[in-house]
Design a protein around this nucleic acid. Structure first.
Lengths: 166, 166
DNA sequence: CTTTTCTTTCAATATGTATTGAAACTTCCA
DNA sequence: TGGAAGTTTCAATACATATTGAAAGAAAAG
């Protein structure tokens, strides 16, 4: 397989992988393109290489910056902006994890915390409390685990992992 | 907050959480409903409580069975089928993890494995190989970690966690 | 065998989300 | 200050996916 095809395949796969996990396809594809570019590229490059509109490219580049996965850079003598992805895969994983934890896990943990003390002594009420309690426990552990793992703190991670599995 | 509202909130939240992670809303809601029901319920119950069509209910119940999150049960003297969710949250997490690993992580690992040895000595080719290699490494570690963690094998999990973070 | 009850399928349709592209906006330079 | 070059916004639209509901299929009962 030549480089051109391989790049194409990678971009498609990253897009598919992203959308299976609730990240929009274009955002993932823009990210993929930046990951495998050896130097910063412009909005125009993104549009051309992925065949997407200016608006789409702009919107997703900004989203990626918001997620700390991409930086704006300037080339001297150039008016337009260039974009460059974080290339350290550990950092990439960390940033993605942190964002998603914040956006989707934390709100769930907060809700479960409230729902644990709904009143009632019927079997339905008891069943409900048990489930919300158990889920609250699990999600909190996961939250803590991710919290520390995103700090690359091995000791903490392993310790938290043990706790999670106790 | 009374039980009725709490149940409603939980079902909505689980649905939202699911769809943020690429699991369809109805499937997550059906799952939520089963999780907080103290006894097995019928397709009719699911339709009524979630206001969804028979086809939708049937389809998602089967999907949940496919994921090993729900079992069919029979009530003596009853013609129709009843459904019951796995209530052990650890098992729930395990089953979900295992399914998604199989469906989405493994194919990516396989592709990255191939892409690592694309030929060429240009900066683009080198950059590409480095990225696919690094991602292959990370995803493989994650794959291994999940593999063992879903077996509730603490020793392995912690060991794998250390390796992941080395 | 016929009817009743329940389950499954799937083409049609609805719904939610992503994408476009042109206009508005901003910044830089002559 | 005018205009060129680039960026951002957002209403309109396209697209993908989920959902419906009626019809076909299966299984048990009469």
């Amino acid at each position: 397989m030549d480089l051109k095809d391989a790049r194409e395949q990678f971009i498609q796969a990253w897009g598919t992988f992203g959308s299976a996990w609730g990240i929009n396809r274009s955002m993932a594809q823009v990210h993929a393109l930046l990951l495998i570019s050896h130097e910063p590229i412009s909005t125009e490059d993104v549009m051309d290489q992925l065949n997407i509109s200016r608006g789409n490219a702009n919107m997703n580049l900004r989203a990626l910056i918001d997620w700390s996965l991409v930086r704006r850079t300037m080339k001297s003598g150039e008016r337009r902006e260039f974009f460059e992805a974080e290339k350290d895969v550990w950092k990439v994983a960390t940033h993605i994890t942190r964002e998603r934890k914040k956006r989707e896990l934390e709100p769930l943990v907060r809700l479960l915390d409230e729902l644990e003390d709904v009143p009632g002594s019927t079997p339905e009420a008891k069943s409900f409390r048990k489930m919300t309690h158990d889920l609250h426990d699990l999600t909190t552990r996961l939250d803590t685990l991710l919290d520390h793992s995103t700090r690359r703190d091995v000791q903490w991670f392993v310790k938290a992992a043990s706790t999670l599995l106790k």
